[in-house]
Amino acid sequence: MHLLPILPPTPPVEVKISTVIVGDHAFTLQSLKDKQQFSDPEGVAERAGISSSTWPLFGSLWPSGVILAELISIHELDGLRILELGCGLGLASLVAHQRGADITASDYHPIAQDFFAINVMLNHLEPMHFALCDWEKLQPELGLFDLIIGSDLLYEPNHPALLSAFIHRHSKPQVEVIIIDPDRRQQREFTRAMEGLNYIYSMAKASIEQTDRLLFKGKIMTYRRG
């Protein structure tokens, strides 16, 4: 787990800067210019199992990520140790950090950390923690969390088993898990896996205003234990 203090070099891809309003605060984000960007000259992403077609996905702001950020902007965070999984550009983590929360951002993509560090600095925030997370590996140094959050995480058939096990390993006895999902097919299998680990499931929909503005038709899925 690393504390990100310094603006890294701009990666060899085309990027854009945009402003996203969450609550009453404007956040500046660097993202990829489009979904055609790709750069893996040393094959790091390929060795991690990230194909050229999925490589750019981390670098876009998705509706699920905005829903998560807006939820975190009003969620009670005081005293909680928080982990964001698959943070991508890290909007929800930036929102939590701006509110003074103890949050660690994480992702599997090899250059997500660079983009996240840039976005921390673009928003004039203090350095914060980032962890490169592989759900298949034991990472005891990461520790345990009171609140684990994520958006649009369930891409592959093996993700429900991997993600539920990873969450369980890093959950405190009393924990809340919030996953925003755009109705991907692995959603039900993930919920069954979490229920098998004794988490209690509840579901909500986005507001009508969010649905219309973001064209989001998925679910806000919450799992609690303890």
Results as ranks from 00 to 15, higher is better:
M1Q: 09
L4T: 04
L4Q: 05
I6L: 12
I6T: 15
T10Y: 06
P11R: 09
V13I: 15
K16V: 12
S18V: 11
T19N: 13
T19V: 14
V20P: 00
G23W: 02
F27N: 05
L32I: 05
Q37L: 08
F38R: 03
S39E: 12
A48M: 15
G49R: 07
G59M: 05
P63R: 00
S64E: 05
S64N: 04
G65L: 06
L71V: 01
L71N: 04
I74S: 13
H75W: 12
H75M: 13
E76G: 11
E76H: 14
D78W: 03
R81N: 09
I82R: 02
E84S: 02
L85V: 11
G86L: 11
S93N: 03
L94T: 10
V95M: 04
H97E: 09
D102Q: 11
D107S: 04
I111Q: 14
A112C: 12
Q113Y: 03
Q113H: 08
F115W: 08
F115G: 05
F116Q: 04
A117P: 00
I118A: 12
M121T: 09
M121S: 12
N123M: 08
H124W: 05
M128T: 14
F130S: 04
C133S: 10
E136N: 11
L138P: 06
P140V: 09
P140W: 10
E141L: 10
D152V: 08
L154H: 09
E156P: 06
A161Q: 14
A161I: 12
L163T: 14
A165Q: 14
H168N: 15
H168I: 04
H168D: 15
R169M: 10
S171K: 06
K172D: 03
Q174T: 15
V175M: 01
V175Y: 01
D181W: 08
D181N: 15
P182W: 12
D183W: 09
R184Q: 08
E189C: 09
A193T: 02
M194V: 07
E195I: 10
E195Q: 15
N198H: 14
M203F: 02
A204F: 02
S207E: 02
I208Y: 00
D212N: 00
L214C: 00
L214F: 00
F216L: 00
F216P: 00
I220T: 02
I220S: 00
T222E: 06
Y223E: 05
R225K: 15
R225Y: 05
